[in-house]
């Protein structure tokens, strides 16, 4: 793990915490407009931070992983925080683990497809670095 990925995990954790808080509040207040807004803002900010820190990550070392480390980190951070949020009772009573597990199952399919692409494309790398960017 390098500095850019560690920063992304930290940023993603903070954004997810804010999102969970906002989501629980919106459900409690039955404020559906706010719920949609916070979901869109969360999605966009996660995408923007992944984009920016992914570029930084590549500048540091051109690790050839097709963004898989960032995807896996997002998956783990989102679900870990969501599960802890609900188990700790911080969420709205209408939020439950079952919904989280359904989301996790669907997301796992995409994560697995991404992992397969990553494993297939790994032959384009030497010691995990992109062959085309190794020597300049």
């Amino acid at each position: 793990m390098n500095k850019a990925l560690a920063t992304f995990i930290l940023v993603a954790s903070i954004l997810t915490l804010i999102f969970r808080y906002g989501l629980s509040s919106a459900i409690t207040e039955k404020s559906w407009g706010f719920l949609i807004a916070i979901a869109v803002i969360y999605g966009l900010s996660m995408f923007a931070s992944g984009w920016y820190l992914g570029k930084k990550d590549n500048q540091e070392l051109p690790i050839y992983d097709l963004g898989f480390r960032f995807h896996l980190s997002t998956f783990l951070v989102y679900h870990a925080i969501s599960i802890i949020w609900i188990i700790s009772g911080a969420g709205n009573p209408n939020e439950n683990l079952f919904t989280i597990y359904i989301g996790m199952g669907i997301w796992s399919i995409f994560l697995t497809i991404h992992a397969i692409f990553y494993l297939v494309e790994r032959r384009k790398a030497i010691a995990s670095l992109d062959k085309d960017e190794l020597f300049e």
Partner: peptide
């Protein structure tokens, strides 16, 4: 940037 890559490999 180049030296980081060479160190890595």
């Amino acid at each position: 940037r180049n030296l980081r890559k060479y160190l890595h490999i």
